[in-house]
Design a protein around this nucleic acid. Sequence first.
DNA 1: AAGCGATATGTTATGTTATTACGCTTGCGA
DNA 2: TCGCAAGCGTAATAACATAACATATCGCTT
Lengths: 137, 137
Amino acid sequence: MAHEHAMPADLTRNQELVLGALNHAPAPLSAYDILDRLRGDGLRAPLQVYRALDKLVERGLAHRLESLNAFVACADAHCHRKGLIAFAICEGCGKVDEFADAVIEERLGGWAAREGFKVERTTMEIRGKCAACLQAA
Amino acid sequence: MAHEHAMPADLTRNQELVLGALNHAPAPLSAYDILDRLRGDGLRAPLQVYRALDKLVERGLAHRLESLNAFVACADAHCHRKGLIAFAICEGCGKVDEFADAVIEERLGGWAAREGFKVERTTMEIRGKCAACLQAA
DNA sequence: AAGCGATATGTTATGTTATTACGCTTGCGA
DNA sequence: TCGCAAGCGTAATAACATAACATATCGCTT
């Protein structure tokens, strides 16, 4: 069973459905995966899902994994983590681990400052095998 | 003018065409962008481009930018950079800067070691505005 | 309460990115 | 010269994402 996440009260119906789907999934879901799971709840078109995802991502309740074209619920229940988040994605079981590292953030900031580059958004995704899957192999 | 890159002698015709297209572009190209530019050279189907890209990426001659679904030639002319590479992508002009940072690599390695996670591939992409574009604004 | 703007919704159609499946060709070592 | 690995060509389709348009809902101001 997926553990419980905070579910803010001010979500719209669609946003709540989509976040619910993500919360109950053990691994990232694509927008179309989500759509398929929510057809029974009245969702019919991709756009309904993408719109909800946009809002959820904007609020930090969900994250987009660029290297997967998929989405996960934020792992931090009382969420809204600041700054850079790194994701470790297991190719075996699909599980995603989320962590922050101040040193990395600082290195990136240093590079940007030297180059005069204004950072707006950073994605960091590690692909590999988690301990459990290595064990099982 | 794009600066010159090393063009290995043992590329196949399609690989050479695709790498050539990337070398002459000032910004990342999607597979379909590449296809369009190479129709005059006889390429007709996406797969011809994707296959070439696979090989080029495998050899480190090109990189895939996950957050863009696009590709760039490796910036290092005598390429085959080891380890983790970070990309800074300007939203203004599309230019991509490529750099490595041993400290970041070491932090990631540390996290992985602690978690027992076996890293296979890491993508790090910074989106923002480059100095030139900030200047122009 | 009426009017208004901002936000969300639903639907259709379409655009963009990536892969599957199949068969042929070529180079090369056993 | 057989057989295999790698590459190539083509058609079809799958997977991911957005445009354009019409309607609805909610909170705020008057």
